[in-house]
Each structure stands twice: as structure tokens, then as C-alpha cells.
Simulated assay, not measured.
Amino acid sequence: MNCLMVICNVPDETTATHIAHVLVQERLAACVNILPACKSVYRWEGELQEASEIPLLIKTTPAGYPGLQQRLLGLHPYDVPEIIALPVAQGLPAYLTWVSQSLLSSDD
């Protein structure tokens, strides 16, 4: 079973909770973990920036990723949000099956 872990930082807890609920409700993600705030340091528009952000760990599949990315872009308040998908190399087979079965299929 192929799964992806998508990492996305958002500006605050309210946005994190809203995005998590929408992605799971619309079956674009099987699960979204909302992590505690972290400090991000980055360059934006030629300036060094520092911000508190809330990381999201989003579980989906390669087939589900395009729809998830499109929806996440529409929900996210940043002009260029961090959306990074990493392949899950290994995992408990029952969990990976659950992730796949939790998402929209071509039969839905």
C-alpha cells in the first residue's frame, strides 16, 4: 500500500483545525496531525522572516495527492504555502490499508 506524508505549516491553530477538518471530511486525507507551534525562519521577498507556525502532518496516497494539493492551496492563507509530500517507505500494513480505504476512491 503506497502512502504519503504531506507536511504543511499554517499560521495559527484556527487555520490548522479548519484545514484538518475539511481535508478529512472531504476524504482527501485519512488523518491530519496538528502539532504544537514551531518557529520558522525563512527568506521571503528578499527579507529574512521569522514566524510561529503550526505544522500539519497529513496522510494520503499518491492517487489522492493531486486533489489534496489543490484543496489545500484553496484553503491556505499563504501565497506560497509549504506543501511537501514524502513517501512512506514502510509502515504497519493494517494502518497503510486504513489510510487508503479512508480516502475517496474511483467508485465514490
Results as ranks from 00 to 15, higher is better:
Trp44Pro: 14
Ser102Asn: 04
Val32Trp: 05
Asn33Ala: 07
Ala20Thr: 03
Ala20Gln: 01
Leu28His: 04
Leu73Asp: 12
Glu53Lys: 09
His76Gln: 06
Pro11Asn: 11
Lys59Tyr: 14
Leu68Trp: 10
Thr17Lys: 02
Leu28Asp: 02
Leu96Gln: 06
Leu35His: 10
Leu92Trp: 00
Ser106Asn: 05
Ala20Val: 01
His21Gly: 09
Pro55Ser: 14
Leu4Gln: 07
Ile58Tyr: 09
Ile83Pro: 04
Gly74Ser: 15
Pro77His: 06
Gln69Cys: 12
Cys8Tyr: 04
Ser100Ile: 00
Thr61Cys: 08
Asn2Glu: 11
Ile34Phe: 02
Ala16Trp: 00
Lys39Met: 06
Pro11Cys: 15
Pro66Tyr: 10
Pro93Arg: 00
Leu92Gln: 05
Trp98Glu: 05
Leu104Val: 01
Ser40Gly: 04
Gly46Met: 09
Tyr65Ile: 00
Glu50Arg: 05
Leu23Arg: 05
Ile54Val: 11
Tyr95Trp: 10
Lys59Glu: 04
Met5Tyr: 12
Ile7Pro: 03
Gln90Leu: 14
Leu103Glu: 06
Leu92Cys: 08
Leu68Cys: 13
Val24Asn: 03
Asn9Cys: 15
Met5His: 12
Ala63Arg: 15
Glu53Met: 11
Asn2Pro: 15
Arg71Tyr: 13
Thr60Pro: 14
Ala85Thr: 00
Ser105Gly: 15
Ala85Trp: 01
Val88Asp: 00
Thr61Val: 13
His21Phe: 06
Leu86Phe: 14
Leu48Phe: 03
Ala94Val: 01
Glu50Met: 11
Ala29Gly: 07
Glu53Pro: 12
Gly46Thr: 06
Arg71Ser: 14
Leu75Asp: 08
Leu86Arg: 11
Leu103Asp: 03
Val10Cys: 12
Cys8Ile: 06
Glu13Asp: 13
Ile19Asn: 07
Leu57Arg: 07
Thr61Asn: 05
Glu45Asn: 14
Ala85Cys: 06
Gln101Thr: 09
Ser52Tyr: 05
Leu96Ala: 02
Glu45Ser: 15
Ala20His: 04
Ile58Ala: 12
Glu13Leu: 11
Glu13Asn: 13
Leu72Ala: 07
His76Met: 06
Gly64Met: 05
Ile34Asp: 02
Gln101Asp: 13
Ile19Gln: 01
Gln70Asp: 15
Asp108Ile: 00
Pro77Asp: 00
Pro55Leu: 10
Trp98Leu: 04
Leu72Tyr: 10
Ser100Pro: 01
Ile58Met: 10
Ile19Gly: 04
Glu45Phe: 14
Ala51Pro: 12
Pro55Phe: 03
Ser52Asp: 14
Cys38His: 09
Val10Met: 14
Asp12Ala: 07
Leu68Tyr: 13
Thr61Ile: 10
Asp107Phe: 07
Gln101Cys: 13
Leu104Pro: 01
